[in-house]
């Protein structure tokens, strides 16, 4: 659950929260593309650091750290797989060398950078704004409505599932008993009431929507309108600059990016 906690929006005010979601999405996309472009440690460290001011301005450090902590298990797995597989699958097995270590760390960091950027996006963008952004990007309204409604009902359904489980446990149901097949079967008494209730709920929702003039006109208006402000243009500028710089380095200096470990060796020699 902790991974999801790191993506759950909490309503606070900060310059980052005020930004247009479309612009923030562009920024996340830029980070995403750059992270995929490079597989060396140095640029990925820079990419990681570049996002920190964002987190602090938005004031979501606590949630953000939680999302990273949640990603820790996957990160460890990625590290171990990279290390082991590169070691055995390369044609000339190397001894566990500093460069191999660095490569594995880089791959892990790439994952963390991706988690970091998406987490910042979801932590600072209200689902309402997200729906609005979809709407103003000419996604059909029915789809946008379905999206925000789904977001709205996830916590409600999660809570309901818990209540149903409690109710069945109180009738002697032991969810963890038996072999795998039995365990799956154990969930039937939970799933059926949950589905029935979801159907009933959707019927009630439809009734409520109809009663509030759903579909009265094709030209729907909107209480909120997203307008680009100065901060939005600044972020576009920042994202575009980073992206262009990254592309420039990637085209011309891709092969020259030094390994951190190779940088460390002369340092160590100098110290000696």
């Amino acid at each position: 659950m902790s991974v999801f906690e790191g993506f759950k929006f909490r309503r606070v005010y900060s310059p980052i929260h005020q930004l247009d979601p479309r612009v923030k999405f562009f920024y996340v996309l830029a980070i995403f593309v750059i992270a995929i472009m490079f597989n060396q440690l140095l640029p990925l460290i820079l990419l990681f650091l570049i996002q920190l001011p964002f987190v602090f301005i938005a004031g979501v450090q606590r949630e953000w750290i939680r999302s990273l902590r949640g990603a820790l298990l996957f990160a460890t797995m990625i590290f171990v797989f990279n290390f082991v597989f590169t070691y055995f699958w390369t044609e000339y097995p190397l001894l566990p060398s500093p460069s191999l270590l660095e490569h594995s760390i880089a791959m892990t960091l790439r994952f963390i950078v991706l988690v970091e950027s998406f987490s910042v996006f979801f932590l600072t963008t209200s689902p309402d704004h997200l729906g609005l952004a979809l709407e103003q990007s000419h996604v059909p309204y029915e789809f946008c409505f379905a999206f925000t409604t789904a977001v709205r009902f996830v916590p409600v359904l999660a809570e309901e599932a818990q209540t149903i489980m409690d109710a069945q446990k109180a009738r002697g149901l032991e969810l963890e008993r038996g072999n795998f097949i039995k365990k799956v079967k154990n969930y039937i008494p939970v799933l059926i009431p949950l589905i029935v209730s979801a159907i009933r709920r959707s019927l009630e929702l439809a009734e409520a929507m109809e009663s509030r003039a759903w579909g009265a006109t094709k030209k729907r208006t909107n209480l909120y309108v997203l307008r680009m402000k100065r901060g939005d243009y600044v972020l576009i500028l920042i994202s575009a600059t980073i992206l262009i710089l990254a592309a420039y380095f990637w085209i011309f200096y891709r092969e020259q990016i030094p390994l951190l470990s190779s940088l460390l060796i002369p340092l160590r020699l100098a110290a000696a």
């Binding site: 309402d128 709205r152 409600v156 929702l205 509030r212 009265a216 006109t217 729907r220 208006t221």
Partner: peptide, 22 residues
Amino acid sequence: ENQLFALSVEKDVAFGLENLGI
């Protein structure tokens, strides 16, 4: 809970009016 669909109170209150294109 089954007659409110938006993610903020004011947006929900506006829902019907938006549908009417006001």
